[in-house]
Design a protein around this nucleic acid. Structure first.
Lengths: 199, 199, 199, 199
DNA sequence: AATGAATGAGGCTTCATTCAT
DNA sequence: GATGAATGAAGCCTCATTCAT
């Protein structure tokens, strides 16, 4: 057998990508350590050398995702807050722009988007491994949106929920329909409608 | 063993309910013929006496759901169309009402809602047993909405997608958050924003 | 495949016998559900249809053994007690006879003897599945012997321990040496020496 | 990782001790190269650097034990033979003393005793790695005892077997019962009974 | 209608071992 | 001397399914 010794960092990244792909296709219960290993070009046992168990694979992926997300989202928000401080009048445009950039990230990595959409639904159940992760993530997102909308909407939390719902739903429809419509335009128009213009 | 001979119709219904519940919790790959049988108070083989295979259980449930849904939705739409024909001016109110009634049905049966939300995401994958079913259902729903919005929105299909997305997303958030906000009010306010008032 | 449907009682008995044989040869960690099943002419899963797990196989065997042993030993002791009550002077002979009959049972079923010898040693460890079973059994045996020796030995518990030790040890030596000496005679002579004749 | 470079001799001794301990607890099939390595503070591969395989670990331990034992027992016997040659009358006392010293060694190192007791039983099976070792050892011990008893017992081999049996059995009972009785006294009294006093 | 017996396939994980560093 | 990477081979158990009763 070709016992290919890879750089551990590379291997881990490779496993992450494959896991995101496969989990997004088949869900946690649908994948197999075996098949995941196969796609990574590693043996069954070889894969478990990096992650002690199947559970840890999912948790590891979530962990990594969280880290990456933080690296990206935090600066975005900081930037928005920065600009916003210059003048209150600018904030609606800034918020729309921020929201748009979130969807752009989604659209840029459909595999990741599918992973999130699928796992999120699977994790609805309280006993699911990833339930807490998605609960927390959702709560944080709603909180964040509500903060951003504080002065823009009469009921910021409600509008925040609507936006998050739209994000989930449009993403899913877009993925299911083989991306056969303009996701960004649909999103923008809905956002514009949901965040009322100041008079 | 108490070999309880049940009325077959009753048993089937009982199995349907249990299947919807468990599938909504754990997904198709998460459930087991064994465990489903257990919850129905039937033996492993006893369950498969009603459904030839695990696949058939899911397909059977979807079939049944489709039938029930048709029984309910068709009259609703007919009624709306009926009223609408009386005068074009009335239709916005009618559409809002119709949409609201759809969400009311969702809210009334959270187990069923969860089943749909979870299976729908799981079925994103082209190879999934239920992929076609959910694709068709979504296409029909979008078509239906687009028709209803024909004269109410500038881009009826786009608005239809937004509404469907909102439906999915709000449902999921509501379920995940233990129904800790007013689903109907949130929906109504979003719908009102997305379907512009005629001037 | 020849899907031979056996009488469940027969199957269980068959599994018991095979388990005793194999456990006596290879110990608990040395056997395999697979191999045990093979020797019983059942499939892997077929075996686990009778015992939910490998652990349960051992526990089941011990349970069954306990039951059988009780059926045999209790009457023996009752008989001894009965005879003994006729006249205290007779008891030494009775005790020797009783002990001899225990060893005869051991000699009659070397497979069972080996099972007990091997598992007993393996179960020395506190964490072993069968530790409690063998502890209890040993305590009971020592208690029983001590009772029988109450009037025959100056220190009944000490003599009881010596007898039990001899029982274990001779059994093991006999088995290891391919039964190349007269077990009963060796035992009788030791017992006679350890239980002093009344003067 | 702290790649602690240890003196090889020290490492080997350390591994021996850990192996004796773990083998005595869990038997050969119960231990794992991994776990043994862990207890030694070495990596998996690090352990196998000292012993080419798991089998070799056991064989190595037995080898080492044999060497140590020879170093101790040979002088003892020589001394006994020496004294014995002075006058035949002294030999019963000398034999009792010699036997006692064997048990004292057992009592002084319960971990080693447990190793011997457990492996000995496990090795009953002809196919066992250590079967030959324990057979040889037992034969030698019986031979030795029989020699010592040549003039002291009517049937030296029989008495020798009884003593060896007692040695095994008492050791095991003592270990199982958490050493809750006086091992040496129990042994001495049995030995005294089994080796008849000269008249 | 309903079940227990039985099974082949496969899933997660552990294990002893090899090899390059 | 010592290790991490990697693996093939099991091992226990679960699963969907079949079949005779």
């Amino acid at each position: 057998m070709a016992r290919l010794r890879e750089n551990p960092e590379v291997r881990r990244a490779q496993i992450f990508d494959a896991a995101i792909l496969m989990l997004g296709e088949q869900g946690f219960n649908g994948i197999t350590v075996q098949r995941l290993a196969q796609r990574c070009g590693v043996s069954n046992a070889g894969l478990l050398h990096y992650f002690p168990s199947k559970d840890e694979i999912l948790l590891g992926v979530l962990d990594e995702l969280e880290r990456r997300e933080a690296d990206i989202v935090v600066p975005l928000i900081a930037a928005a807050a920065d600009k916003a401080s210059e003048g209150a009048g600018a904030s609606r445009g800034l918020v729309l722009e921020l929201l748009r950039s979130m969807l752009e990230r989604f659209a840029a990595r459909p595999d990741l988007g599918r992973f999130l959409v699928v796992m999120q639904a699977e994790a609805l159940h309280r006993e699911h491994l990833a339930n807490a992760w998605f609960r927390d993530r959702e709560a944080m997102t709603i909180d964040l949106f509500a903060d951003l909308l504080a002065t823009l909407a009469a009921e910021p939390r409600r509008t925040a929920r609507q936006l998050v719902a739209l994000l989930y739903g449009l993403g899913q429809i877009w993925l299911r329909g083989d991306r056969d419509f303009d996701l960004l335009a649909t999103w923008d128009s809905a956002v514009a409608a949901l965040i009322p213009e100041r008079r």
